[in-house]
Write a protein that binds this DNA or RNA. Structure first.
Lengths: 227, 227
DNA sequence: CATGTTGAGATTGTATGCAATATCAAGATT
DNA sequence: AATCTTGATATTGCATACAATCTCAACATG
């Protein structure tokens, strides 16, 4: 497969792994050297990531890892809540045994993780659970949108789950969601999913908003005390 | 501003104008010649359009205007219905005088177009009306998602509105939606928007796929049997 | 007659070079 | 001292060249 595709994935991974922090510049020359290719495929990967909203590509000024404002971030979580609840609504309407089984399996895995207090593994299995719901909507386009947004938010979501009690609460919410979907209660499934997702956004906002009123001077950037 | 950006817009416009039909190849050399640039910025534009889902870029095999299957298309409309109803729900909750005025103005314009039977102009003003609702959600990220999907579907939507009585029906639905949003009735606004959008998908489906079930061979499409 | 093979031409993928623009620090001006 | 130029340097944007792969039709083979 083409290099640009592999590079796109690698750069995305590096960003998600936190190797590049929000605000960091992604300059073409260093990336080219790092991956042992010329600037051309790097540019192509960056432009694609930019089109997907993963990074910010400013004409003539290079690409940076996007720095959503607290407001923007909350909007993203709110949108995720709307999309997920739509998935839940459709899942409740259309549930098949296969999809039910997939959700069940993912939920069981999450249970185990909580019992073992393995928050890192919970993070992964939580993702599987949510993706099982997306698929259960039996609308692959909607599911794709949900996947994409989930991925964009995962960096922020991960921080959330570090809190121990949140882990247990999350699991209990999953149980309630699953129950509603199985009961075919579209309304309930939608509203439970909505708050399950939104609470994360709210918690995160609280956390971030505590620090920055509006003028974010994101800590950690080598901002110019210089002058 | 950079050429690639302008080109991206131009190619998108050409696709939306129907100059390239679904399934047509977008080969780099001819586009480069047409726009008087080299292949490099053309590639960059195509890759970005591909990342946005507007076209299909198949590695080593060039880009084509995507040809959503009837099923996929219906899924896209269903997703649009979910997103729009989310916008409506939030708009009902958060309506400001400014957003109200904007929706009102767009609605008035649509009324005038119907009275004059100008379906082409209605097409444009209808878009404004819907975009006014997106903005009224006061969630700019959600609104951006809605814009993008609306754009991707507009080619199919346009065909819909050609039918005369559909024009009037559409207008009446708009009135109902506006009323619900103003009344602050989130549920009603959401459900009215949902069916307003979905009915287009359904009509389109009926048109294209009277034979949905799974039997392929979409009769009547010129790209069906191909070569 | 159907199917597999092959090779020329066409098209995409990547590297490199140069032009255009942005960045930033040192010096000029008030 | 603060702000405004200005030029050197770094970085991006685009064009061109070449390499890698695909396409497709003519031919060979059973």
């Amino acid at each position: 497969m083409s290099q640009a595709f592999r590079l796109k994935q690698s750069i995305e991974d590096a960003v998600m792994a936190g190797e590049f922090r929000p605000g960091d510049r992604l300059d073409e020359a260093s990336l080219a050297e790092r991956f042992g290719v010329s600037r051309t495929p790097i540019r192509e990967a960056l432009l694609q990531l930019g089109a997907e909203g993963f990074i910010d590509v400013r004409p003539r000024r290079g690409a940076i890892v996007s720095v959503p404002s607290p407001t923007r971030l909350f909007e993203m979580f709110e949108t995720m809540a709307e999309i997920e609840s739509a998935c839940g609504r459709l899942a409740a309407r259309r549930l098949t045994p296969e999809n039910d089984a997939a959700m069940e399996a993912a939920h069981r895995a999450c249970e185990l993780d909580v019992r073992q207090g393995d928050s890192e593994q919970y993070y992964a299995d939580n993702r599987n659970f949510h993706e099982a719901i997306y698929r259960a909507s039996r609308n692959s386009f909607l599911a794709d949108q949900a996947f994409a947004l989930h991925k964009r938010l995962s960096a922020y979501r991960r921080i959330q789950l570090r809190a121990r009690n949140r882990l247990l609460q999350s699991l209990q919410e999953h149980a309630g969601i699953l129950e509603a979907i199985r009961a075919g209660d579209e309304q309930l499934a939608a509203s439970r999913l909505h708050s399950h997702v939104l609470v994360q956004g709210e918690r995160f906002s609280d956390m971030v908003l505590g620090l920055t009123q509006d003028r974010s001077a994101p800590a950690g950037t080598r901002s110019g005390a210089g002058r």
